[in-house]
Nucleic acid binder design. Structure first.
Lengths: 199, 199
DNA sequence: CAAATTACAAAAAACGTAAATCGTCATTTT
DNA sequence: AAAATGACGATTTACGTTTTTTGTAATTTG
């Protein structure tokens, strides 16, 4: 990990605050620079554009949740436990962001919808974690899918509703307990499906 | 079915054309009325508002696909066949609309996102068809779920990605063959899950 | 009297302009 | 030399004005 310059981290911190408090619409480079105690022109020494600065803020959050997911994937537990916790952590992380930080969630949601590089890369890395855990399950005999690639696609497709920002937005007003119960069923099914070679 | 007045159907036809060709943004009551050969005020004799007219256009499409679904659900085939065809018809109907009629798709998508009455009612009726077919499958012994309500929720949740407009928009650029293959896997799994009492 | 029109107020959209922000670069500061 | 600034044109946004559309109601037409 490269050591960031102090000004860069300061800008990023202030930008993060601004985005969380005021939202994308009222997020301006001038205001961020002012609060960071510098001219807006100087911000461009560290971030090539306003969009890049917003992406950087979102990326900080994405990387943080990626680390939590990687910790789960790297753990010593059985693959099925890890897959369950991976799905739950991802679903909960996104859902908590929606309820606790709607502005940041909205920025993330747009980055995903517009296929920004940061979200595409995040998607690739998260997918890799899923693949790793499923492969581990296959190696240990916990999972016995008939077709490994189809099994991975199946897991991602079936959990889509509880993970993808666009899908989570649709259920913002559904009681969390109800969502949790349905997700729990879905995961239980997915694990059995992987274990019994249905997929 | 109540016989509609000729002017009403004419307005609806012109409105449908306009929406398909020009999209929601450029859809005006004045333009529709003009093309239908009347003053805009007269349109309000038949539709209470611009929004109601747009909804009526979308509703025509929704009802048409509902009829196709009902035909499947009412057929004499085994429940698992019917459930598969129900899911495929719904997914294909929505996806075809997205590619062949993007403006109308967009209007539908917004009606769903904003929870218009027409989309809520459509959802309720489509869900009822799913319930009927699953119940039929339970009665005939084709399906043996441990919990009927959870089984229904499971089917709806797992197919969400291939049915919901918001999810379909995300995959507009994915080759149709790839989507079809994944959906086919998902359905096969779902039918086995229902049949073997995993859910 | 049902169907449609004209007339009109309220709401929304389109337009044009003023102001702010974005992004670049030459110059200054440390 | 690295960090920051001031100045400046290009873009975007904000805002007041004008036009169009929406929706209602009184009136006309067949």
């Amino acid at each position: 990990m490269p050591t960031r310059e102090p000004s860069e981290t300061r800008i990023l911190t202030v930008a993060s605050e601004h985005l969380r408090l005021h939202g994308l619409k009222r997020f301006t480079v001038v205001a961020v620079a002012e609060e960071a105690g510098m001219t807006h022109a100087n911000v461009y020494r560290y971030f090539p554009s306003r969009a890049a600065l917003v992406d950087a803020v979102v990326d900080v959050w994405l990387k943080a949740t990626e680390r939590r997911l990687a910790d789960i994937a790297d753990g010593p537990d059985p693959a099925d436990d890890k897959l369950e916790r991976l799905i739950l952590a991802l679903a909960k992380g996104n859902r908590d962001l929606l309820t606790e930080d709607p502005h940041l969630f909205s920025a993330l949601s747009q980055a995903v919808a517009k296929r920004h590089a940061i979200s595409r890369r995040n998607r690739t890395r998260v997918r890799a974690l899923f693949e790793r855990v499923i492969d581990e399950g296959i190696a240990s005999g916990t999972f016995e899918p008939r077709d490994r690639d189809k099994a991975i696609a199946y897991v991602i497709d079936t959990t889509h509703r509880f993970i993808h920002p666009a899908a989570l937005e649709l259920e913002a007003d559904v009681p969390q307990a109800s969502v949790d119960a349905r997700l729990s069923t879905l995961i239980r099914v997915a694990l059995r499906v992987l274990a019994t070679g249905i997929v």
